[in-house]
Write a protein that binds this DNA or RNA. Structure first.
Length: 322
DNA sequence: CATCAGGGCCCTG
DNA sequence: CAGGGCCCTGAT
């Protein structure tokens, strides 16, 4: 267990509109011990430049005049440069400086989208993990049910991850690639991750050897980033979609739908049980173009927020199998 | 008790 | 390009 103390705090001003809660928390995600959320508050662990920080975000503003207090917890007092790097990284992950007002201007009167925009005005995409961390999550999701995904995540984090205590919260984060490649595959398999054990090792080796540079990937156009990520062993169309949309924040891609998602989109967009994947993709892209990915997320997250807020949606429960 | 699909992907033929 | 196999687990 790593104990961290409060060492720095400041207030940031994201570009409006910025909706804090719907940006930091994505109820469509499976429950994990990687963050703690309370209304207007968010705790997570940041691994940056070989150091470990606890980060607390506090909503101090409103959607049209957003202010976020960021509190840094660390072992030693961070230097000015360290602080600058941390703030830059957190700003990227939560899109404090991304102006998406164009999206709202363009679609506030859109027949389909307008009610969702009204409800979640200022919601951005976000990802508290780095690319490597999200990739690990992507592997946990492969070819299984959510219950087992949750179990595998817990097993692996408790054995090989780091448990960080700060601000009276306990939050986990992932191991480093360097650490996990030293573990024999058999030992990983003992944690009931199955064939994924091999993937964790191979992928971690790729991150070290091929020097997969997240910062470089962030600069690439979506198709180029996609091409590079698909070269990774164990990364296919669904995992790459997760990485592109969440870790690399691409709003302009909507080209893959897994079967369980197909059922949900069919209901949400067409009010039908099952519409072909091809038809859904064409519909979303033709309607919302370069904003297709973000538009889809407004419709997608909305139903999961309703669920989180206690609304019973029988057909949805059947599809997500928690 | 046995069988099987599941929030994919790789490999083979 | 289709289809089998992979790990394990809860559901049937």
């Amino acid at each position: 267990m790593i104990n961290l103390n409060k060492t720095f705090s400041t207030t940031l001003k994201p570009i409006p509109p910025y909706n804090f809660d719907s940006t930091v928390l994505k109820p469509a995600h499976y429950p994990d011990p990687l963050k703690v959320y309370e209304a207007g508050k968010y705790w997570f662990v940041l691994r940056l430049n070989k150091k470990v920080y606890g980060i607390k975000l506090l909503n101090k503003g409103v959607v049209n005049k957003p202010e976020i207090q960021i509190v840094i917890f660390s072992k030693t007092k961070p230097s000015q440069n360290e602080i600058k790097d941390i703030i830059e990284e957190v700003s990227y992950r939560f899109e404090f400086q991304r102006d998406i007002s164009e999206f709202f201007k363009k679609f506030k009167k859109d027949k389909v989208l307008s009610p969702f925009i009204k409800r979640w005005y200022g919601m951005h995409g976000s990802c508290a993990q780095d690319l490597y961390g999200l990739l690990m999550i992507g592997i946990f999701l492969q070819n299984t049910v959510i219950k087992r995904t949750v179990q595998m995540t817990k097993n692996m984090l408790e054995k090989y991850g780091i448990k960080v205590k700060f601000d009276n919260k306990e939050v986990y984060y992932f191991w480093t690639p360097e650490e996990i490649i030293k573990i024999p595959e058999k030992e990983l398999r003992n944690l009931k991750v199955g064939y994924r054990a091999k993937l964790f090792i191979k992928l971690s080796q790729s991150f070290i050897k091929e020097k997969i540079n997240e910062y470089e990937l962030r600069q690439l156009p979506v198709e180029e980033a996609k091409e590079r990520l698909l070269k990774l062993y164990g990364v296919g169309p669904e995992t790459v979609r997760i990485l592109l949309v969440e870790a690399l924040h691409h709003y302009d891609i909507f080209d893959h739908i897994a079967p369980w998602q197909q059922k949900i989109y069919s209901r949400l967009l067409f009010n039908k049980k099952l519409v072909s994947v091809d038809k859904i993709i064409k519909y979303v892209n033709s309607k919302w173009g370069e904003w297709a990915g973000l538009a889809a997320s407004y419709i997608w997250e909305n139903i999961f927020w309703k669920r989180k807020q206690g609304k019973k949606i029988d057909w949805l429960e059947k599809e997500i199998r928690l």
